[in-house]
Simulated assay, not measured.
Amino acid sequence: MADNAEIKQHFWKKLADSPFVMIGATDGGHSEPLAAQLDEDQVDTIFFFVGKDNRLAGGGKTMAQFVSKGHDFFACLAGTARVDNDFGMIDKLWNKQVEAWFPGGKSDPNLALLRFDIDDAEMWETDMSLAGKVKMLFGGKIKAGDEGSHAKVGTTAESTAA
């Protein structure tokens, strides 16, 4: 089983590999898929390029759900979203995929950089042991420790244990 620090490292690696999350306001509205923009200098923060008319542009309490490409890592992130149109950050995170959505480029009048600050997270990693996989394949009973790792964390910073 991985410890909390390892799980957090795995989260950021998996998110970088497949940067798509479902994110929505906690007021009962539906979540929507967005492509995460990651900045290694920002702890507990994920950015998204959205239109100013996007339902999340108003900000507020937000939840994001992530499933890794291999379906071996899951995360639920709680935090606060707000528009933060810092041009330096827009310039740093800009890429060809974003440009495809905003034909006016970095100065597109509809462009908004959504900043999602993570308050806490819950993560699951299915690092099932070989014995556990064999048991599951043949209908055997899976015991604690066979199924994977789980962490409830107050920060997703990789260098802290909590």
Results as ranks from 00 to 15, higher is better:
residue 157 A to T: 06
residue 130 L to M: 12
residue 88 G to Y: 01
residue 90 I to N: 02
residue 157 A to K: 13
residue 47 F to R: 12
residue 84 D to H: 04
residue 87 F to E: 07
residue 123 M to P: 11
residue 17 D to Q: 12
residue 73 F to D: 08
residue 28 G to K: 11
residue 141 K to E: 12
residue 142 I to V: 07
residue 38 L to H: 03
residue 34 L to Q: 10
residue 45 T to K: 04
residue 31 S to R: 00
residue 158 E to Y: 00
residue 104 G to M: 08
residue 130 L to E: 04
residue 159 S to D: 15
residue 143 K to S: 14
residue 119 D to R: 05
residue 159 S to M: 07
residue 40 E to I: 00
residue 128 M to Y: 00
residue 37 Q to N: 03
residue 126 T to D: 06
residue 26 T to E: 13
residue 101 W to R: 15
residue 21 V to A: 06
residue 108 D to L: 07
residue 109 P to D: 09
residue 76 C to R: 04
residue 12 W to A: 13
residue 17 D to H: 06
residue 44 D to S: 10
residue 137 L to T: 15
residue 37 Q to L: 09
residue 149 S to P: 11
residue 158 E to P: 08
residue 88 G to V: 06
residue 64 A to H: 01
residue 114 L to A: 03
residue 68 S to E: 02
residue 85 N to P: 01
residue 123 M to G: 06
residue 69 K to V: 09
residue 145 G to K: 07
residue 3 D to Y: 00
residue 124 W to H: 13
residue 7 I to Q: 08
residue 67 V to K: 11
residue 150 H to G: 12
residue 71 H to T: 08
residue 76 C to L: 03
residue 84 D to F: 02
residue 12 W to P: 13
residue 61 K to T: 13
residue 23 I to G: 10
residue 102 F to Y: 09
residue 151 A to L: 04
residue 19 P to M: 11
residue 17 D to W: 01
residue 56 L to S: 07
residue 97 Q to P: 07
residue 11 F to S: 09
residue 22 M to Q: 10
residue 43 V to F: 05
residue 38 L to D: 03
residue 88 G to C: 04
residue 151 A to Q: 09
residue 81 A to H: 05
residue 75 A to N: 07
residue 116 F to N: 10
residue 53 D to M: 03
residue 99 E to Q: 15
residue 106 K to V: 04
residue 118 I to A: 10
residue 147 E to M: 02
residue 69 K to H: 14
residue 7 I to T: 10
residue 154 G to D: 15
residue 56 L to H: 04
residue 50 V to R: 02
residue 97 Q to N: 14
residue 78 A to S: 14
residue 143 K to L: 10
residue 86 D to E: 06
residue 112 A to P: 09
residue 117 D to A: 15
residue 50 V to G: 05
residue 154 G to V: 14
residue 10 H to P: 03
residue 65 Q to K: 07
residue 27 D to S: 15
residue 2 A to R: 13
residue 98 V to P: 03
residue 43 V to R: 10
residue 13 K to T: 13
residue 61 K to E: 12
residue 120 D to Y: 07
residue 69 K to S: 15
residue 127 D to M: 05
residue 38 L to S: 05
residue 158 E to K: 13
residue 68 S to P: 01
residue 148 G to F: 00
residue 90 I to Y: 03
residue 127 D to F: 00
residue 73 F to I: 02
residue 146 D to R: 01
residue 108 D to Y: 08
residue 59 G to H: 06
residue 117 D to W: 00
residue 71 H to Y: 06
residue 91 D to F: 01
residue 160 T to G: 04
residue 158 E to H: 08
residue 28 G to I: 14
residue 35 A to S: 11
residue 139 G to F: 01
residue 65 Q to A: 13
residue 59 G to T: 08
residue 141 K to G: 00
residue 151 A to W: 03
residue 149 S to N: 12
residue 115 R to G: 03
residue 117 D to C: 13
residue 153 V to R: 08
residue 58 G to Q: 11
